[in-house]
Design a protein around this nucleic acid. Structure first.
Lengths: 215, 215
DNA sequence: CGACCAATTGAATTGATTCAAGGTCCGTGG
DNA sequence: CCACGGACCTTGAATCAATTCAATTGGTCG
């Protein structure tokens, strides 16, 4: 595991989500730890329990098959909470994608805490179910369109998408190969749906065309 | 929607799962309703809230894309609870697969109820995450092997698998076409891994071979 | 500048799908 | 009791989307 830096951050963070705020008030929020690129937050088999709040940067939640194929089950961005698991130990592992600041939330056993956690879990639930549809029933083009629209939405922009992760990560998230990701982007570029400002920055020229691909 | 029969069932049901038992005691369990083949339990857009306990039979949880492709996100068998959702209305719909007895559990607001629900949600969570790996990173053969082993495990048998659902359902669960499902079964049959006792009954001759396919 | 890693692009291959033709099972009615 | 019809399943052949393998380009850092 790579090194990790701890530093104190002013009590007020930039979290807007009321649900997450409430969760923070009902737990003992620790300091923000900085995880460099590719640093592991927790490994498969680690004891589960504490929750993690992304303050900045991006985290990937992954699982490996026995022969090394990887599936990224979700990306967590600033404001997202992760680490929730069923058993006593993590079935999945979490890594920093691009250098991420992460705060540990240690659950207090206050009344209503389970309730908040439940809300959080249910929300993630919905996301995962639509990801099942994506993986099971969508073409490469549709997957990418879906992914870009999701990022657009999360980043609150209406035409610029920042890609904090590399092609390989996108591929393992969408159930494709990185070559296919590259090719799909090229197709979208050729159709004038997007423009590649740089390798990690996409301008969406025709959001309607993307939306048309999705449904 | 198809007709549905209500009939009273003795208070003691056959549920063994302690988690589910506790849940029943903390809610107002209604009578068992019988849903015939393909009957809808709830539709997309219906108000969410009550939970459903499968007493017997099988239920499928589905979502459709705009152009009618279907993804079955999970099958629920006797003892499983479903109906948990994030928002106020169902994003997915639930149907009886083979004629199912279903009990409605109306949540009381007792302390600890959220806690029980959380446990339930987290368990389902884990299942869904491994289904993501299956859909995103496995070949047709691996998917089917995984599916059969899961059924074997759930049905508590060590060599007979009953298939309550038809090929189409299996396909939509595994992200395949029904023709592919048929062909994969043929391959497994030819390799003497399974035997098709009948169309809805499979004898597993070589569970190790199945396991070898999975990991 | 050179080394290295990521991304792109091309060509060949393949796994799964699509389309189409039978086959099996089962319930219904003559 | 058997013939018929319909739904489901199986199988085959052709097609296609995505992968694999391989070569090249682009970008970054010492």
């Amino acid at each position: 595991m790579l090194s990790q830096t701890t530093f104190q951050v002013a009590a007020s963070s930039t979290i807007q989500d009321p649900e997450v705020c409430a969760l923070m008030q009902q737990s003992q929020p620790g300091a923000v730890n900085f995880y460099p690129v590719d640093a592991m937050v927790y490994a498969q088999g680690d004891v589960a329990g504490p929750l993690y709040l992304v303050e900045f940067g991006t985290v990937r939640i992954c699982q490996l098959t026995a022969d090394g194929r990887r599936q990224i089950t979700s990306f967590c961005y600033a404001g997202d909470v992760f680490g929730l698991e069923a058993g006593g130990e993590h079935e999945f592992y979490a890594e920093s994608v691009d250098g991420a600041g992460i705060r540990v939330l240690r659950p207090t056993n206050e009344a209503g805490f389970a309730h908040r956690l439940l809300n959080l879990a249910l929300r993630r639930f919905g996301r995962m179910q639509s990801h099942l549809v994506l993986l099971g029933r969508m073409s490469a083009n549709e997957k990418m369109a879906h992914f870009l629209l999701d990022l657009l939405d999360r980043q609150g922009s209406d035409d610029i998408v920042d890609l904090p992760m590399q092609r390989n990560d996108i591929a393992d998230y969408l159930g494709l190969t990185f070559e296919t990701v590259s090719r799909v982007l090229r197709v979208l570029k050729d159709r004038a749906v997007i423009r590649l400002q740089s390798v990690d920055r996409i301008e969406v020229l025709d959001a309607d065309a993307l939306a048309a691909l999705v449904d």
